[in-house]
Design a binder for these strands. Structure first.
Length: 325
DNA sequence: CGCGCAAACCGCCATG
DNA sequence: TACATGGCGGTTTGCG
């Protein structure tokens, strides 16, 4: 797997009304991947049917035409800002053609609505931004919509929840192609522009991995279910009957990061989910996510995401008629 | 902000 | 000999 020689083309499609942040996530993440030998395995091509395309805020020109997505290995479909607008039939046609020629296709956020309209999700599981999962499920009864996951992997067709989950999904694809180490390094290198509130910070690298090791996978699932409990290294080691030393080594080789870092990131991840989709106050969220004190929670949250929990909550959610709680 | 204790990290090495 | 394990302990990191 480390010796991938052929260039892998990632086509990012854009269209009128696209959420540019979703598209940027894919461009930034894939273009930053570097293998140990220094080789960049992905070529990112932004493609559109018409040019220039109009977003809600500005116009942009994509350097490639839609016909090019048929020769891509991966096609990324970012979200439209308005899910009630009919997607461009031309785009749907090209997505089907790309699928037929073997490309894997992934949507970010409300991009799932476009995949759904193209028929590619029929009979499959899918997810989208939490505020419109109901809408998706109602409009497409033949799709099994799961509102409780970050992303869904159907082998060749992928969907992801909010913007954060879009990063997770990109890293998941990178991990499938090049392994955990490369994906973890990419996450570390990816300096995302959360320009709204703060400067540039490291982003989180997390989500469920590709571990063939069964005991290891169940440990990660166990962590997920026990985020609010004590998750010291000793506890984790006991859980799988390993010494702390061996556990630490296994973690590094399978996930690219040490155990405590993993746990922290999962806790931050979970707290983000609560901030995005619940009305719990910061103290409650800190406790639910397993932080000893809300002061510590605020501190860690800011260190990792670059913004405070409350401004994170304020800056999330998409434009939609749906009510928030 | 900073102090002090405790935990985590990780190179090193003995052991099976 | 090649390799995985896990204990040790110096240093770093994190939490209250």
């Amino acid at each position: 797997m480390p010796h991938t020689k052929n260039i892998h083309t990632v086509a990012v499609v854009i269209f009128d009304g696209v959420v540019t942040a979703d598209a940027s996530i894919a461009c930034e993440t894939f273009s930053r991947v570097k293998l140990a030998c220094g080789f960049s395995p992905y070529t990112v091509k932004v493609c559109s049917a018409n040019t220039p395309i109009n977003t809600d805020f500005f116009s942009i020109k994509a350097p490639h035409s839609l016909s090019e997505i048929a020769s891509a290995q991966t096609v990324i479909v970012p979200g439209p800002s308005e899910v009630n607008k009919e997607p461009d039939p031309e785009l749907l046609k090209h997505l089907n053609k790309a699928r037929e020629s073997g490309a894997r296709i992934a949507s970010i956020c409300t991009g799932a609505f476009i995949l759904a309209a193209s028929g590619l999700l029929n009979g499959l599981k899918a997810t989208t931004h939490w505020s419109v999962t109901d809408t998706l499920a109602r409009r497409y009864p033949q799709i099994e919509v799961d509102p409780n996951v970050l992303y869904v992997d159907n082998g060749d067709i992928f969907t992801s929840a909010g913007a954060m989950a879009g990063i997770d999904l990109c890293l998941h694809l990178i991990r499938k192609d090049h392994g955990a180490k490369v994906a973890a390094d990419t996450a570390r290198m990816s300096v995302m522009a959360m320009e709204r509130v703060g400067g540039q910070r490291q982003f989180i690298k997390h989500e469920m991995p590709n571990t063939e090791n069964i005991t290891f996978r169940s440990l990660l699932e166990w962590i997920e279910k026990n985020l609010h409990n004590n998750l010291s290294i000793k506890c984790l080691a006991e859980q799988v009957n390993m010494s702390t030393r061996t556990l630490h080594r296994r973690f590094l080789e399978q996930l690219g990061i040490p155990p405590a870092t993993w746990v922290l990131q999962r806790r931050i991840r979970y707290s983000q989910y609560l901030l995005e989709s619940s009305h719990f106050n910061i103290d409650q969220i800190a406790a639910d996510a397993g932080f000893g004190s809300s002061a510590n929670f605020r501190d860690q949250f800011r260190r990792i995401t670059g913004v405070s929990p409350s401004s994170y909550r304020r800056s999330f959610g998409i434009k939609d008629s749906q009510k928030h709680y």
